[in-house]
Simulated assay, not measured.
Amino acid sequence: MTTATSTFLDHLLAQRTQYRYKLPSRPDAGRFIDHLMRLLFPVTQDCQSSSQHVEETYQKLQEQLICLLRPLEKNLPDSPVSIADRFFERLPPIYDSLLLDAHSIADNDPAAVGIEEVIAVYPGFYAIAVYRIAHELLQLNVPLLPRMLTEYAHGQTGIDIHPGAQIGRSFFIDHGTGVVIGETTIIGENVKIYQGVTLGATHVAKSMAQKKRHPTIENNVVIYANATILGGNTIVGHDSVIGGNVWLTNSVEAHSLVFHQHQTEIRLKSLESGEPINFVI
């Protein structure tokens, strides 16, 4: 071993003592979320044989979660076993909420064949499901793992939902690629958003970490593709429609229609001079 290699390895060993957290593996986190989704929504069947015993699967999932929590044990408010027990006690209302999300997508998307298709293949539903599971772990004061779960879903779907966001019932994300929902976003009930929507912050300074940086979207709002809504003081009033490509940093009243007005310029040549004449419509 060369001196340079030995020095580098010593540096790596020293660096290990500087980390504040030990984390579970990312593949294990992904496996846990996918196994949990199969337990909750067994609408697909693996080609390989799998256990049909719900109780056995449930027990294995509890063991998986405990294993994921072990590396974080020093930073947990309680033992991994206790936190896993509390999480699974909260699973029934999470499940009920996810059913409402799935029905909202199936009922509002003309292309959806049924709830089974939504559950099995719709990226919007998958991202919402992982968010709701991760959000519950965050409510139990579990650090880092919730973000690992939503980032796994981000990689699978292209939809980035921070587990700290507060999202109401019957949430609908259509298509979904490029959607970003920030940590302090508040979303009401029966909200629909489309691909490319950003619910973000106007400033990203570290000093604002504990402040509300992201917008509030009230009930029954529709936000169309590629709209950007920014700022912790920005409120979109209930029953409003935000059109595609809108850039919004100010609040709007309930029942508002906000749209991006484009301008089209037609260039014609003058018959006399041959010079172009511009008409704006």
Rank of each mutant, 00 (worst) to 15 (best):
P71V: 04
K74Y: 00
L199M: 09
L61R: 02
R90W: 04
P42H: 06
I242N: 01
V191G: 03
P77W: 01
L230C: 12
D96P: 10
G200C: 02
L68Q: 06
S82W: 08
R26T: 07
A201P: 03
T5C: 01
Q156W: 01
F171D: 01
Q18F: 05
I187W: 06
E218V: 14
H262P: 06
E253Q: 06
N226L: 13
A227W: 04
A205M: 01
I128P: 10
F171T: 02
P163Y: 05
V252F: 05
F125A: 13
I83V: 13
G237E: 00
Q210T: 12
L230K: 05
I217A: 10
I266H: 05
P71A: 01
S49Q: 12
V43F: 11
G244K: 00
Q52R: 10
L68Y: 02
A227I: 05
L199I: 14
G30T: 13
W247E: 01
R16S: 03
I173S: 09
K211G: 10
E272A: 08
P42C: 12
I161R: 03
R31D: 07
D109A: 04
S6I: 09
G237T: 04
H154D: 08
A112N: 06
N190F: 04
N226F: 13
G114Y: 13
E151L: 02
P123D: 11
A201N: 11
A14R: 07
N141P: 08
I173P: 15
Q195N: 06
P163H: 11
A201R: 07
I66V: 12
C47E: 12
L100D: 12
L61A: 10
S270K: 07
H154T: 03
Q64K: 12
Q45F: 15
L23G: 05
V81R: 03
Q15E: 02
N245M: 13
S104A: 15
R169V: 03
H35G: 08
D78H: 09
R90S: 06
P77K: 05
K22P: 00
K211E: 12
L257D: 05
E151V: 12
S82Q: 02
H35S: 10
Q139H: 10
E136T: 14
Q195F: 07
D174S: 14
Q263S: 07
S79V: 01
P71E: 09
H260G: 02
F279P: 06
Y152N: 02
I94A: 00
E136N: 13
A205I: 04
D78Q: 08
E183A: 12
H214K: 08
V121P: 15
S79Y: 07
E136A: 14
S50F: 09
L145P: 05
E183W: 15
N75R: 05
V258Q: 04
E265V: 15
S240Q: 00
V222Q: 14
F32S: 09
